[in-house]
């Protein structure tokens, strides 16, 4: 396989990275809201949050993407397929990230919060100074895995016509009749990206680690 073909794949991986990064970030914002809803005192909010998490974790991303891709125009939103892809990926990863965040908050030992209560912390201060930093540190490994999961899942948006890494490999394979090399090369590019992300996650974990609880 020529360098030119490989370079086309690398260029297409830019879109893979952008789509994933945007979805993971948007998903994180949404996940924070969903997590807040699930952990709130309001029963309706809790139920809505749980339903959201259950649905988006309980259905294949491919089906979600197809549904959103065809649903958006029907409700009058004629957006580019990249946008539909981001909407679908963000919703899906939000559900997973919400569960991860909830797990982090639940794992903050109760005694640490009681100690803050005894020192006169307001609920807001307890959240900001104690619960949030500890929960974030506890969730970094899981959030890194989720980011890698999303990078891999982004290959599915090739189905709704986004020319990202997988779709580029597919198109090139069809025109050159060399699927073996092209898909192997695409896999290699994914692997490199994921190794970098895993490394970043480990670095972040190390930088934020003050030993175990």
């Amino acid at each position: 396989m020529s360098w030119k073909l490989f370079w086309l794949l690398v260029e297409a991986s830019r879109l893979t990275i952008i789509l994933s990064a945007v979805s993971i970030s948007l998903g994180f914002v949404l996940a924070s809201l969903v997590c807040a809803a699930v952990m709130s005192g309001n029963r309706a909010a809790r139920a809505a949050g749980r339903l959201f998490v259950s649905f988006f974790r309980g259905t294949p991303l491919l089906v979600q993407l197809l549904l959103i891709y065809y649903l958006l125009p029907q409700i009058g939103l004629n957006v580019p397929s990249e946008v539909a892809a981001i909407v679908g990926m963000s919703l899906c990863t939000a559900a997973y990230q919400a569960e991860i965040l909830r797990g982090g908050f639940v794992s903050v030992p109760r005694g640490l919060i009681e100690a803050a209560n005894m020192c006169g912390f307001s609920p807001a201060a307890t959240f900001r100074r104690i619960r949030l930093p500890i929960a974030v540190q506890l969730t970094i490994p899981a959030l890194t895995s989720e980011a890698i999961m999303m990078l891999k899942s982004s290959s599915l948006v090739s189905v709704v016509g986004v020319i990202e890494l997988t779709r580029m490999a597919q198109d090139l394979a069809a025109s050159t009749y060399r699927p073996l090399e092209l898909y192997a090369a695409a896999g290699f590019v994914y692997l490199v990206i994921n190794i970098v992300v895993a490394g970043l996650g480990l670095g972040l974990e190390k930088r934020m680690s003050w030993g175990r609880l």
Partner: peptide, 12 residues
């Protein structure tokens, strides 16, 4: 002021 059996120091 309260002191707990498990210390409950903030680890971060």
């Amino acid at each position: 002021g309260m002191v707990f059996q498990q210390f409950n120091l903030w680890p971060h």
